[in-house]
Computed example of a mutant assay.
Amino acid sequence: MVRVYTIASGKGGTGKTTVSVNLGTMLAILGKETYLMDADLGMANIGLILGLQDAPVTLHEILAGKNNIDEGIYKGPAGLKVIPSGISLQGFQQADPDKIRDVLSEIVKRCEFLLIDAPAGISKDGVVPLAVADEVILVVNPELSSIVDALKTKILTEVVGGHVLGTIINRVDPNKSEIISKKMEKALGVRVIGIIPEDANVRRAAAARAPIVVKYPDSPASIAIRRIASGLAGVAFKEDTARVPREGFIERFSKALFKKKSDMK
């Protein structure tokens, strides 16, 4: 059975897109056929995080009717399939967000999991991802403004007929995780499905344009994401879950050589 999850937040800056990328990658590592779609048409970031900012066909072109879905699907880490949005204003203006439903109806025929990275805040573009998903996962920081905005997103989700599965609390002080979890459940009225601790390796992985679950698989944030993904996939959580092999010198050298030859054509 295909599961469609929209990853949402009430405000920008919560780490929602980073969570989406790493959660999708971890599901792929667990052997699940997983697609990740960037539905943030105006402020797309997935392409930037994964080095796909120059992708010739994005969700913008698909929603504008210029290209078909197959042309906008790219291979990401661990076999994750990625559908990025473009970063140009012209592409944003030409994209029709109402056609996202048509794109989704085609993608769900191909996968086990579809993660939709929704726009932050409350906007027309953000309503469709909240309404079409099986369940919505809120990414929240342990601060008042993030909680208040997440509550607004939860209410909007329910108004448009969606359902919030729970929340992932991101960037948490490990010494305060238990008390923060209880306060969050009380404030939002939904269960906490995962807590991701503050981890400097998240920024290091972002600088390398790689998911932290691949770049630093033993880091605290990676282990937390692995736990969340295992719960969604319905598999037993294991800290030594199979990982993506790291590239050795020969692989990196060959890739660089191939790229250089391609650039010369």
Rank of each mutant, 00 (worst) to 15 (best):
residue 246 R to A: 04
residue 59 L to T: 07
residue 198 E to T: 13
residue 75 K to A: 08
residue 11 K to Q: 11
residue 218 D to V: 02
residue 116 I to M: 13
residue 34 T to V: 10
residue 170 N to Y: 12
residue 63 L to T: 09
residue 167 T to I: 12
residue 99 K to H: 08
residue 234 G to T: 08
residue 261 K to Y: 11
residue 87 I to A: 10
residue 243 R to C: 00
residue 121 G to R: 02
residue 88 S to R: 12
residue 95 A to G: 12
residue 169 I to D: 07
residue 117 D to K: 09
residue 156 L to Y: 08
residue 77 P to D: 01
residue 57 V to Q: 06
residue 135 E to N: 14
residue 24 G to L: 04
residue 261 K to M: 13
residue 4 V to G: 08
residue 133 A to N: 08
residue 115 L to S: 09
residue 140 V to I: 14
residue 162 G to N: 09
residue 46 I to D: 09
residue 204 R to V: 05
residue 228 I to K: 05
residue 156 L to G: 10
residue 55 A to C: 11
residue 43 M to Q: 13
residue 13 G to M: 09
residue 76 G to L: 00
residue 204 R to S: 08
residue 140 V to Q: 10
residue 185 E to K: 07
residue 59 L to D: 08
residue 131 A to K: 15
residue 254 S to L: 13
residue 59 L to S: 07
residue 100 I to W: 06
residue 237 F to G: 03
residue 177 S to E: 15
residue 134 D to T: 08
residue 219 S to T: 02
residue 137 I to N: 02
residue 41 L to A: 13
residue 118 A to C: 10
residue 132 V to R: 06
residue 178 E to S: 09
residue 227 R to Y: 13
residue 102 D to P: 00
residue 261 K to C: 01
residue 19 V to F: 06
residue 243 R to S: 01
residue 174 P to M: 10
residue 38 D to G: 07
residue 68 N to P: 03
residue 53 Q to E: 15
residue 48 L to T: 13
residue 196 I to D: 04
residue 102 D to T: 14
residue 178 E to T: 09
residue 39 A to P: 11
residue 191 R to W: 01
residue 149 D to Y: 11
residue 236 A to C: 00
residue 147 I to W: 11
residue 73 I to C: 03
residue 70 D to F: 06
residue 161 G to L: 07
residue 121 G to P: 07
residue 95 A to M: 10
residue 253 F to Q: 03
residue 172 V to Q: 02
residue 136 V to I: 13
residue 56 P to K: 13
residue 261 K to F: 14
residue 74 Y to W: 04
residue 265 K to R: 13
residue 99 K to D: 12
residue 8 A to Q: 05
residue 77 P to T: 02
residue 105 S to D: 13
residue 224 A to F: 07
residue 24 G to R: 01
residue 89 L to Y: 10
residue 214 V to L: 00
residue 245 P to Y: 01
residue 68 N to G: 14
residue 188 L to F: 06
residue 19 V to S: 08
residue 105 S to I: 05
residue 188 L to S: 13
residue 145 S to T: 15
residue 138 L to G: 12
residue 202 V to A: 02
residue 155 I to C: 09
residue 63 L to A: 06
residue 85 S to D: 11
residue 129 P to A: 12
residue 12 G to K: 14
